[in-house]
Amino acid sequence: MISVIIIITLGILMIIAGIVALHLKNLLAAIITAGVISLLASVIYLILGSPDVAMTEASIGSGLTTIIFLYALNKVRKEKKDD
């Protein structure tokens, strides 16, 4: 029963984060919000009984993917400064 409540709460948070991430004008904030979705998803995988997937999602989905997005944004901004 408690796991159902946790999944519903996290799910509402994730859906809000998804809508917010697509509508924010600031790209940096949008990228961080998209990383939060992956971090919350890793808790859901843990409740659904697959800790392997939870570890992978926490390290790859919310860690490395966010970093790579930020590096790409950094490169785009640097190009803008050069001209």
Binding site: D52, A54, M55, T56, S59, G63, L64, I67
Partner: peptide
């Protein structure tokens, strides 16, 4: 235990990060 090559590899990459 949970975990394996992919997770461990990513953690090594974060060390270099």
């Amino acid at each position: 235990t949970p975990g394996g090559g992919f997770q461990g590899g990513v953690i090594i990459a974060t060390a270099f990060l």
